[in-house]
């Protein structure tokens, strides 16, 4: 079996990695100087939300006749959401908190919104490792049930955003609306449950 099931996928990978490469390049060229942690935490979080929204948009878009091809890339988009969420966590740990255990511990004790973010990341991790064809076969009908947890992850992300709003609510509002539309669409189309993904 070849590693890439479709020959365009390596190119797609490059496209999905562009925000990451751009952030890394800007970081190393000093664009985020003198306090890169603060800015990059926000940027990586935004990209995780964007890919999450994209992953949840695939199945509604598949209803459109010519967009059925998108089904081939859904796993790819979902894995990207996990990747950016992981980058977001690493930026918090290293660039923001400087791996200072004191800093991280007091955040864990007093900032409950971190757990909402961690919950979303744990779910995305579980979905990522169970996303291979092999795992799909092995899990059978449980696979679909497991992957419905993606909705819980979306809700956790919205909580993570609202819980920490300072004075600017724009990001929280935008992604709440997007996720509410995507989740609402599925609730309303509930009679055709089997297609709800």
């Amino acid at each position: 079996m070849r590693f890439w099931d479709r020959k365009e996928k390596p190119y797609l990978l490059v496209v999905f990695l562009l925000p990451f490469v751009w952030m890394l390049g800007s970081l190393l060229s000093g664009q985020y100087f003198p306090d890169p942690g603060k800015l990059l935490m926000r940027l990586s979080g935004i990209w995780a939300c964007v890919f999450m929204a994209a992953a949840l948009s695939v199945s509604p878009l598949m209803k459109v006749k010519h967009l059925k091809v998108l089904a081939r890339y859904r796993r790819f988009v979902g894995l990207s959401a996990f990747f950016y969420a992981l980058v977001h966590l690493l930026i918090y740990l290293v660039l923001f908190a400087g791996l200072s255990w004191n800093w991280i511990r007091s955040d864990l004790v007093e900032k409950p919104y971190i757990y909402a973010g961690v919950l979303a990341l744990v779910i995305l991790f579980a979905l990522a490792i169970s996303s291979t064809k092999k795992m799909m076969k092995r899990l059978g009908r449980h696979w679909k049930r497991l992957h419905r947890l993606v909705y819980l992850a979306a809700i956790a992300i919205v909580a993570h955003l609202w819980w920490q709003v300072k004075s600017d609510t724009s990001l929280a509002v935008i992604f709440s609306v997007v996720f509410a539309l995507l989740l609402g669409y599925r609730l309303l189309g509930g009679q055709k449950r089997s297609n709800a993904f």
């Binding site: 942690g37 290293v94 400087g98 900032k111």
Partner: peptide, 18 residues
């Protein structure tokens, strides 16, 4: 919404904050 026990003395390094 955040801890005040520690601080990042700017400028941060390329990867690690001070």
């Amino acid at each position: 919404r955040w801890s005040q026990k520690e601080e990042r003395r700017l400028p941060s390094g390329v990867i690690f904050p001070n």
